[in-house]
């Protein structure tokens, strides 16, 4: 059974993957020589579900600004569509086999079974590809917020008065709040608990360093016209906190891009 990257993907694909592997096993053991039931209706249900999924996928490609998503989605959609067509062909072949009067399977029956398995596997694989493409897009979206927050930290070096400080805090707070929410949501969805623990720890550190950064900026503002040791200490603290926060965010970006099996890289 494959390892699923997120609980969302796992919830969708795990039951299908289980069913398909059992079916493949039955087929390989040659226990499926009986005439197949009428498959037209369940296959049409699958075909309709594929059409809806393809429609949503195409709408998403049209609306998104993510160029990688635009490129990666069509092959996955095509795989799902081709597999659904294969299932339709399978049902046509198997309906021929249903008319046989002997116990021996017809060539159509054999071919139909092969297409059924290939089609079911293809739908599983195509849906998996599609969900992973969208998951990667979600990771890129979170990484973008990370980079925006990290880039904004550079503005701390131009804070010289109380007004600058107020503007800086007012701009930094929504970014870090959004980032914390996105990381929290991502952690709820990830299946690898080592990654969840590492991400949570890094995000907690970012949150813990922010009050220190603001205090150091305040101290700098208070000593802006008084060069000396106090000002030097304020600058030193500011650099320390911006570096720490920046490094934690860089680590968050790295952790977000790991896949579920990348256990060795969490340290």
């Amino acid at each position: 059974m494959p390892v699923f990257h997120t609980k969302t993907i796992q919830m969708i694909l795990e039951p299908v993957a289980e069913q398909v592997s059992t079916l493949v096993l039955i087929h390989e053991q040659g226990k499926d020589g009986n005439q197949m039931p009428d498959l037209i209706n369940p296959i049409l249900t699958v075909k309709a579900a594929v059409s809806n999924l393809v429609k949503v996928g195409k709408d998403q490609i049209k609306d998104t600004k993510d160029e990688i998503l635009k490129l990666d989605t069509p092959p996955a959609l095509e795989k799902v569509e081709t597999s659904a067509d294969m299932l339709v062909q399978a049902s046509q072949l198997l309906s021929i086999d249903q008319k046989r009067e002997t116990a021996e399977m017809t060539p159509e029956g054999m071919e139909g079974r092969k297409k059924l398995i290939a089609g079911s596997r293809g739908i599983l694989q195509g849906t998996s590809d599609l969900l992973l493409v969208f998951d990667e897009a979600e990771v890129r979206r979170i990484c973008k917020v990370c980079r925006n927050v990290r880039d904004y930290l550079n503005q701390s070096s131009i804070v010289a008065g109380m007004e600058d400080l107020v503007v800086f805090v007012k701009s930094l707070t929504p970014g870090t709040t959004t980032l914390a929410r996105m990381i929290g949501d991502r952690c709820k969805d990830l299946t690898n608990q080592n990654h969840v623990a590492a991400l949570t720890e890094e995000m907690d550190q970012v949150k813990a360093y922010i009050p220190g950064l603001i205090s150091s900026l305040k101290a700098f503002v208070q000593t802006v016209d008084k060069p000396g040791k106090a000002q030097e200490a304020a600058i030193g603290n500011r650099e320390y906190y911006t570096t720490q926060i920046s490094e934690r965010i860089t680590e968050i970006i790295r952790l977000l891009q790991l896949v579920s099996t990348d256990d060795a890289n969490t340290d």
């Binding site: 039951p15 299908v16 069913q19 398909v20 079916l23 009986n34 197949m36 369940p42 949503v56 998403q60």
Partner: peptide, 29 residues
């Protein structure tokens, strides 16, 4: 949006699962 994509993928997953389950049961009997 992504939520709609997940919803439709879930519907497809269920439909495929139902189809495969039907074949599995048929083969097992």
């Amino acid at each position: 949006n992504a939520a709609e994509m997940v919803k439709q993928a879930r519907v497809l997953g269920q439909a495929t699962s139902d189809l495969v389950n039907m074949l599995k049961l048929e083969a097992e009997t």
